[in-house]
Amino acid sequence: MRYAMAVDTKKCVGCSDCVVGCQTENNVPIGYCRDWIVEVTDGTYPQLEIEIRSERCNHCENSPCVRCCPTGASHYAEGGVVLVTPDECIGCGACIASCPYDARYPHPEGYVDKCTFCLDNRVKKGLDPACVSVCPTKCMYFGDLDDPNSPVSRVLKKRKWKTLIPEAGTNPQLYFLI
């Protein structure tokens, strides 16, 4: 099993519902976020283009944050999802420094937190991650890459996509449809 997510930059409007949705679903404290929206505008008026991306932890297959964690708090869970076990985490910050995407943050409680792909509280119960399920444009797809019929497999087959900083060698599992 290999969980992955795809975000359609052609449909995403940057509304940030995925950010609030994650916050209320996962009790992310006010002032922090597990996902965020990047908007890139290129060109000169009126020859312009915008790419909008809803970003979060890439659940990298070759993930530096898991590698550098001294306690094993950061680990691969079911389906390759990268998780942090709060009471194994010493808050050393190594994983934060190691993530090329700045996807992690120090939770006010002390441990390091980040996107979980909603594995335990939703995905294992057969639900989509919160951000995917609230998105009004339905521009996010989630599922098992090993299952050719999962929404994410299907859309990746159909569309052109990219990942972020492939040259960092992390092998991200968050795909952007372009």
Partner: peptide, 23 residues
């Protein structure tokens, strides 16, 4: 109160709120 989500049967929202509704 923890969260507010759309009602799947509602033709106004089809189960999905906008960020303001979620917030």
């Amino acid at each position: 109160i923890q969260k507010i989500v759309g009602n799947d049967d509602d033709p106004h929202c089809n189960g999905r709120f906008c960020p303001r509704g979620t917030g």
